[in-house]
Amino acid sequence: MDEQDKFAIWIAASTLRSGNREIDALALDDIAQQVRGSGDLERELAAMRQFDRRGGDFGAEIVGAVVIPILIEAGKQLWAAYLKKLTDKAAGQLADVTADEVKALVRGRWSRVDESARADFETFLRAEAVRQGLSEAQTEGLLAALHQPGMPSEIAKA
């Protein structure tokens, strides 16, 4: 799993847990475990989208199958934006930035004093939700998770 994928999974899981979407967060944890073996996040996300719907399903599986890829893509966009900030700051000296380094930058910019990371992620998340056809109500539900009191503590976790 590359550093961008690690970061995207981390920010997506933090968002899901902040929004009390523990079932989706557990599904994402399972995907992350599969990616550790296969090394291919896109393939694992595609497999998640191809689930078999059975009688008795209440739609939660469908929501997760839609929401998780949106969060992952928005996380990748946030990664790219903050990777650029790090490399610009270091005048291009960083060849191999790790997910932990970008996480540290995001953590520092997610506080109540400086909410730029949250605002950046919200922008990327809203755009990706529109691009992938998520309903306005579902989009607002995801965005609300970013403003929950528990989100900073989720971000603070490794």
Rank of each mutant, 00 (worst) to 15 (best):
V66L: 10
A119N: 09
G55F: 04
R131S: 02
D24Q: 14
R21L: 14
D120W: 01
F121A: 05
I70R: 13
E44W: 04
V63I: 11
A158M: 05
R126H: 13
T87R: 13
L94S: 10
F121W: 06
V63T: 08
T87Q: 14
G37M: 07
R131W: 00
E3T: 04
A65N: 13
F51L: 01
D120C: 02
A145I: 07
D88H: 00
A127Y: 00
P149Q: 02
D52N: 07
K157E: 10
F124L: 08
E44T: 05
L86W: 03
L86A: 13
I70V: 11
G141N: 06
R36Q: 04
E122W: 02
R126M: 06
L26R: 15
I68K: 05
R112N: 07
N20M: 12
R54A: 02
D40F: 06
V130Q: 14
G56V: 03
G150S: 09
R49F: 02
L41A: 10
L26H: 10
L86D: 04
A99F: 04
V63M: 05
G39T: 13
L78G: 05
Y82N: 09
A119Q: 13
L125G: 12
A12K: 10
V97R: 08
R54F: 02
S135F: 03
V106C: 08
Q132A: 00
R112L: 00
V113N: 09
G150M: 01
A129H: 01
L142R: 12
I9F: 06
E42Y: 10
E42W: 06
V102N: 10
V106M: 03
F58N: 13
Q132M: 02
R43A: 11
R126W: 03
I72S: 09
S18F: 01
Q34K: 12
D30G: 12
L143D: 07
L83I: 00
M151A: 07
L146P: 15
D120F: 01
A81S: 08
G39V: 07
R21Q: 15
T87E: 08
V66E: 11
A47P: 00
L105P: 11
L28M: 04
A145Q: 03
R107L: 00
E115A: 06
A65D: 10
G92N: 04
L94K: 11
Q93A: 14
L16P: 11
F7W: 09
L142M: 13
W79E: 07
V97S: 14
A95M: 06
Q33W: 01
D114F: 02
D52L: 00
L28Y: 01
E3R: 04
E154A: 00
A156D: 09
L41Q: 10
L142V: 10
Q93C: 01
R53G: 10
Q34Y: 02
E115K: 13
A137P: 06
V35R: 11
R118F: 01
F7M: 12
A144S: 11
H147P: 02
G55N: 06
M151C: 01
L28Q: 09
E115V: 07
D2K: 15
A119P: 07
Q148T: 05
K157R: 15
V35L: 07
R107V: 00
